[in-house]
Design a binder for these strands. Sequence first.
DNA 1: CTTTTAGTTCGGTAAATTATAAACTAAAAA
DNA 2: TTTTTAGTTTATAATTTACCGAACTAAAAG
Lengths: 155, 155
Amino acid sequence: MTTEERIRRQKEMVEMAGRFYEKKGLQPIAGRIVGLLTVMDKEQYTFDEIVEDLQISKSSASNALRLLEISGAIDYITVPGDRKRYFQLKKRDKFALIDEHRVTLTDALNYLERTLELKADKQSENAVLIRDMIDMLNFFLNKFEELKKEYISQK
Amino acid sequence: MTTEERIRRQKEMVEMAGRFYEKKGLQPIAGRIVGLLTVMDKEQYTFDEIVEDLQISKSSASNALRLLEISGAIDYITVPGDRKRYFQLKKRDKFALIDEHRVTLTDALNYLERTLELKADKQSENAVLIRDMIDMLNFFLNKFEELKKEYISQK
DNA sequence: CTTTTAGTTCGGTAAATTATAAACTAAAAA
DNA sequence: TTTTTAGTTTATAATTTACCGAACTAAAAG
């Protein structure tokens, strides 16, 4: 693969990544920024480079960058004697992705438990289904921690 | 807890459930409908009951119900000699919730694999992080199936 | 044949979201 | 001191989403 070919494909991938992050609730421009910082070989981008590469306005960039920093997706470094910020993907624990899912499942578990409590007839079809799901969620959530340990020790 | 107290709390719970499903991408009214069918003791609702209970227009109800049926969240039964549809939560496999997460994680895995392939320097910080995440996702996704089997056999 | 029932479809609108341009600011450079 | 840099803020435009009312329809009931 030539360098130009690689860069072309990477730019396509930034778009795909953007849509991927949009589905997770990011606004389009924020998604593209995360895509850019994840997919391209360059790992630090200045404000102006982001504006230029994604062809967006400075205000959109400013807004999205602020949001992404608050939410912990990105951060930036500075170099002494250089006023620019160099934005980069926040180096997260590799378990972060899995842990997010664990949180979502825990939320679901809480919602289902509170719902079951309020059922007049705990033997109704829905109540039984809810109880089954609660039971299964508990099983999986407990195993999560075990799996993490197993994974770490195996390395 | 008196019956009125229970119903009052259940109605509060329908709101909470609605917001819960909104976060999953459902529009507000669709979320409330799923909440209603999940939380309340009544397990089948007619079109008019939904319109009445949630205080929404017929068109909003029609729209949301169509969407929810297409997406497989609800279905309805009919009774011979009765033109009404009785909407209910689709009785899904209790693993459905877990399986959805598996699909999401698989999507993430694909995205990361395609991204890693395009990296010029596979030893760059991001590339190494991406490889670690891919490795861990593979580990967890494989264990998922094992866990399902373990859960089923233990019952 | 007319009326009622059980919704569906269409057109419009209000509200929310997303993005922009332009004015502004604080710090550094000239 | 003036100018430039590196953004931020503000006001607004454009787009999208969510919802409603009203007209409509197909089947059943009267």
